[in-house]
């Protein structure tokens, strides 16, 4: 059964507030039992890179925030395979405990299953 809302995260962390604020929106919806599905695509896949030491630039670690997703009831995320390949990022570097990473080839087909898409 498809969900109502898909959140598409396609901005890199730190360089743009949208990455963090998008995640906050996902967490807030999940905390209200309206958990959206989440797709990381484009530069958004950089949010998933391990070993982020955001303290070096006086920011909070977006990757640590992402690790909280299972606590909010998000146990699966979609990741665009083509975006990973374009950026030479191997999917097996991106493991997050408690989250099932689903690689997507047909993002258009995925998007079409939802009533609403929020872009971040």
């Amino acid at each position: 059964m498809s969900q109502i809302t898909l959140a598409i995260c396609r901005h890199a962390p730190y360089g743009n507030a949208l990455a963090r604020e998008g995640l906050e929106a996902v967490l807030a919806a999940a905390a209200m039992d309206q958990t959206p599905d989440v797709l990381f695509t484009g530069d958004g896949i950089f949010q998933l890179l391990p070993d982020q030491a955001a303290g070096e630039i006086d920011q909070k670690s977006l990757h640590r925030n992402l690790q909280a997703l299972p606590m909010f009831g998000v146990e699966q995320i979609y990741v665009c395979q083509r975006s990973l390949e374009e950026r030479a990022v191997s999917s097996n570097r991106l493991a997050i405990a408690g989250i099932n990473l689903v690689l997507v080839q047909d993002t258009g087909g995925l998007i079409s299953r939802y009533q609403h898409v929020l872009s971040f």
Partner: peptide, 18 residues
């Protein structure tokens, strides 16, 4: 611990789960 691990203050639902 939650804050150290996730750099977030939990809402009720994640707090209960944690």
């Amino acid at each position: 611990d939650f804050y150290r691990q996730f750099e977030l203050s939990p809402a009720m639902r994640p707090l209960v789960k944690y």
